[in-house]
Design a protein around this nucleic acid. Structure first.
Lengths: 110, 110
DNA sequence: TGTGTATATATGCCGTTGTGTATGTTCGTG
DNA sequence: CACGAACATACACAACGGCATATATACACA
């Protein structure tokens, strides 16, 4: 649903979490690897990963003491689909703008 | 660039700005129409639109005292392309995960 | 030129959220 | 079973950001 898209965007939009997503694009990573790659504190990374997981953006797999995080393909797909839904725009959707820019004083509600 | 994607996601992720984007999907709107549709204060809507414009998500056209806002197709396209760039994932990118899980059986976590 | 309309900007307040530090928990190993 | 490694959780604090209010600016019209 669209509401999930908004939640996932909120999660990904945060700068450090965005970096985590970009990092995980290269494949699954352990928390320690992410900490080393981003130069953040381990508790901060754990919290970011928790928020990403709650938004369905990442998943975790346990291996001994380690936890391997990876992107959740379906979540990224939904995001892609949502953004692609605007495709109709870059053909021609400016008709209503033309209506606005005529000399008619339009004041329609929604 | 990827950095612009992050900035645009930060702009769109905010709930009320997300509603504005969804509203503008239906075509250009004046500020007054957006205010009426969302039930927010006019200054708040103006500020949201300013942030969206700074992120390149929307554009404005002046008509007398009104300002007609519309989505910037290119921005939405870049966002779509970025998300679609993860498409390689839902084919098979779990090879590195397999490397992680080499001999031990693992359980799902979080 | 004065007035009403449409929108933008400025400011103070307050909730949300990221960060730093300390501690808890799970698991492998000697 | 005690210890260390890897990660999660708790808590206090500070910064960022949205909101409400007031005010400023641009424009049409009489």
């Amino acid at each position: 649903m669209v509401n999930y898209v908004q939640q996932r965007m909120t999660a990904i939009a945060e700068p450090n979490r965005f970096r985590i997503v970009e990092l995980l694009r290269g494949g699954p990573r352990s928390v320690g690897e992410i900490v080393g790659a981003l130069g953040l504190g381990q508790p901060q990374v754990s919290r970011h990963l928790r928020l990403l997981a709650e938004a369905g953006v990442v998943e975790a797999t346990k291996k001994a003491q380690q936890r391997i995080y990876r992107l959740h393909p379906e979540a990224m797909r939904e995001l892609s689909d949502w953004a692609a839904g605007f495709a109709e725009l870059w053909s021609a959707r400016m008709d209503r703008l033309d209506a606005f820019l005529d000399d008619d004083t339009s004041q329609q509600g929604v």
